[in-house]
Amino acid sequence: MIDNACIGDVKWQSFTVKYTGDVVADPAPWMHDEYDIWFRDPNEVVWNMLANPEFANNMDLQLFHEYNMTDSTWWWQDFMSGDWAWCQADIITEDQDCLGSTFIPIILGSDKTTVWVATSQNDYYPLYLSIRNIHNSICQAHHNGVVLITFLAMPKTTREYASKDEFHRFWCQLFHSSLSHILKMLKPGMVKPEVMPFGDGHYRCII
């Protein structure tokens, strides 16, 4: 059961969402349904990943450029060597309070895999989180470098209502409002550095 599962010491939590818009005289069934969203606190997940000693020697804590010594060709391999990370660092350093902090890029991803819970006839989209300081080789080999954090509810309805604009809007609103509720837990650490333990035994300010 999802609510009893505990991976990496971060417990699953849930909240319920339902349609709150105008209801017509003969409403579609989905307007009365409730949708359970299951998630784990992404801030705690990031904390666990940073503190994992398995990543201590496979993590970039600073930006870098890597070149071929023979022809000076710029090599891209891990995330922290890319242009985007450097651009974000320039933006972060505009805030004096963030100077000296370790930049922790967070990447979210999903796929077309759906999880079907037979007991309640619910379908879910899984959502995954990774911190991109971890080397690509570790993420590709898993090693908890990519972590499942959310089961996003997929509203269903009958064929009669599936093509209606109201249902399509609700589908999008359900997706975005669910993400907003879950990811707001990361927001404090996006504007003010937080101190977190790392797998090498040191504590660092991160942003």
Rank of each mutant, 00 (worst) to 15 (best):
E44H: 15
S101P: 03
L127I: 09
F15I: 11
V191G: 08
D9H: 15
M196T: 10
I37F: 04
M1Q: 15
N52F: 01
T73R: 12
I7T: 12
Q140P: 09
E166K: 13
Q62M: 08
D165T: 15
L50W: 00
D41N: 12
H202G: 08
M59A: 03
E194N: 11
N52H: 01
Q140R: 14
I2M: 06
K192A: 13
Y67C: 06
D111P: 01
N48F: 03
E194I: 10
Q121K: 15
T20L: 06
I149V: 12
W12C: 07
A28L: 09
A85K: 05
G145A: 03
V115R: 09
G189Y: 03
E54N: 14
A118Q: 11
T158G: 07
D78C: 07
F39Q: 03
V23Q: 05
Y125Q: 06
D83S: 14
I91P: 01
E66L: 12
S180V: 05
T119L: 09
D3C: 13
N4W: 10
Q96R: 13
M69H: 11
Y35H: 02
L183D: 00
A162P: 03
I182G: 01
H135F: 13
V45Q: 03
I131E: 01
D83C: 13
P155A: 06
M1P: 15
T93C: 13
G109V: 07
W86H: 15
Y67F: 11
F64E: 07
Q173E: 15
S137F: 04
R40N: 01
W12M: 05
H32F: 10
D41F: 05
W47R: 13
H168I: 11
T102P: 02
C139G: 12
C172T: 15
L186C: 07
K184I: 09
D26T: 11
Y128H: 09
C98E: 05
L148G: 05
I106T: 07
G109L: 03
D33I: 04
M185P: 06
E44W: 11
N57Q: 13
I134T: 09
V45H: 01
D95I: 10
L108Q: 06
C172V: 15
K18W: 08
A85E: 01
S110C: 13
K112M: 08
R40T: 04
Y128W: 11
S137L: 08
V24D: 10
D3V: 14
I2H: 08
D26N: 14
I7G: 05
D83I: 13
N43I: 05
Q88S: 08
L108S: 07
